[in-house]
Write a protein that binds this DNA or RNA. Structure first.
Lengths: 110, 110
DNA sequence: AACATTGTTCGTAGTTTTGCGAACTACAAA
DNA sequence: TTTGTAGTTCGCAAAACTACGAACAATGTT
């Protein structure tokens, strides 16, 4: 009988991959780091930190928002962004757990 | 005068984004976790853990190798893969530092 | 009302990613 | 020599990503 393992990705792995993917671009890393270093700030300030057009910045912010890492709030006429601390902590935990993976098996080819 | 900040991504941010991007797919997370849990194993064992064709697995492995997170070694007629511990540790440090970002500024919109 | 400010959304273009089957390479065994 | 095993590479297609300028929306100012 074939080894019909659970051939799907676990929810945790999906979630971790999702966080990682959101962090998978230097502009988004820069945005996250910038936001993490303060309470909050406006779109314009973020745009000012980056070498790309505002339309592109807006897109990156949307992706980070979709991944749950940041949140935005309209403060007419500006838009204030900040880290979503809850998910930020969650992401940190995911990464910590991931890198803490211990060698539990002997390896399938020893 | 315009605030002509350093409009480029730092090497560190590029590197972190690179690692994150490599981790930005559930299949690759699964592979990394699998390899991290043992000393090493063969392509076939990895393929066996995943719900995708071998050609696709091979591609994912190549990406992880390019990102420096794993390494492969021919052991005719098989190919043995393992975590690149040096870069793994480096990645871990990058993520740790990233998530440890402290609020040093008051925020540009307080 | 006309204009300025702040961002988002749209349309477009080019690149990259993801995935697969088929073909191929390298070696070992029958 | 033919066959089998273990993976990689190729060629292709669909989807997603990255980026930009232009157009737009929402509000405030003159």
């Amino acid at each position: 009988m074939e080894n019909d393992n659970n051939k799907e990705y676990s929810i945790d792995n999906e979630q971790l991959a999702r966080f990682a993917k959101a962090m998978g671009h230097p502009a988004r890393i820069t945005i996250l780091q910038f936001l993490a270093s303060m309470d909050s700030c406006y779109f314009g300030d973020i745009h000012n930190e980056l070498p790309i057009a505002k339309a592109t910045v807006s897109q990156h912010l949307k992706e980070l928002k979709d991944a749950g890492l940041i949140q935005g709030e309209i403060e007419t006429p500006k838009v204030k962004y900040c880290i979503n601390r809850q998910n930020w902590d969650k992401a940190q935990e995911y990464f910590n757990t991931f890198f803490a993976t211990k060698k539990e098996k002997t390896g399938c080819c020893n």
